[in-house]
């Protein structure tokens, strides 16, 4: 079989239509997961009574199981709960009316939250303890010290890892096809099987993923440079 180079371009353009969906599946969980991550990291660091155990279990379980399982469990489990609640409270709605993408958002956000909580936790731990003491010494409350002194620095330290998280989510978004959402990977499969040009379609999809990854790396690099102005100088 011969590789049809020109079809790669055709496939590329067609698959590109799925880009908004892929980006949505990447960005929405990134943002929600970030919020979950900060919350979980703080709960675990301050060992908030009782719930820090729940948080610990959440992180351990989600990081200890593959993303595809999270998708299945959310996709199959939530409708069961939803339908039962709906019947009980008489919402008059059926789980089949929930858009597919909601399940993906939930599964991916939970997954991303678990990983990001660890990224943020390590970032917080990397902030110089002396600065926290200094914050306390000038009379700041724990909350003020956390939001004004610790978190801004912790997030900056975490930036490269958060970028990795983005890339992981971007590539993980291809699993959304498993519940038949047509994101880039799904679209590529359709284009491939309708035209009988498999390698070409998947190469086109790969190029799109790679391009997105390059852009993400570039943006992170720029961001880091901009935000790190304070680290310039070099005198200890």
């Amino acid at each position: 079989m011969q590789l049809d180079i020109s079809f790669i371009m055709t496939a590329f353009l067609e698959i590109l239509q799925a880009l908004p969906l892929t980006l949505a599946i990447t960005f929405v969980p990134l943002v929600i997961g970030f919020g979950i991550g900060i919350g979980i990291a703080l709960i675990r660091l301050y060992e908030v009574r009782y719930i820090h155990r729940v948080a610990g279990f959440y992180v351990s379980f989600l990081r200890g199981t593959p993303l595809i399982l999270h998708i299945y469990i959310v996709y199959l489990g939530i409708p069961m709960i939803f339908d039962r609640l709906s019947a009980h409270f008489g919402w008059g709605m059926n789980s089949s009316s929930i858009p597919l993408i909601i399940f993906i958002f939930i599964a991916f956000s939970l997954n991303a939250g678990a990983y990001m909580s660890e990224i943020i936790r390590s970032g917080i731990l990397a902030v110089n303890k002396g600065e926290i003491e200094a914050a306390y010494s000038i009379g700041m409350t724990t909350r003020q010290a956390m939001w004004r002194i610790v978190l801004p620095q912790a997030l900056l330290i975490s930036l490269p890892n958060l970028c990795n998280m983005f890339i992981g989510l971007l590539h993980g978004s291809s699993l959304a096809f498993s519940i038949s959402l047509l994101e880039i990977n799904g679209k590529a499969s359709i284009v491939a099987s309708t035209n009988w040009k498999f390698v070409e379609s998947y190469i086109a999809a790969a190029i799109i993923y790679w391009g997105l990854t390059l852009i993400a790396e570039q943006i992170t690099g720029l961001l880091e440079k901009r935000l790190r102005t304070f680290a310039k100088g070099g005198v200890a």
Partner: peptide
């Protein structure tokens, strides 16, 4: 504790300036 801290200030051996602030 907060009341005591607001009556005092400290200068540290390792300065402990907030690195991300001017």
């Amino acid at each position: 504790v907060l009341a005591l801290r607001r009556k005092t200030a400290m200068v540290f051996q390792h300065y402990n300036l907030f690195k991300h602030k001017t």
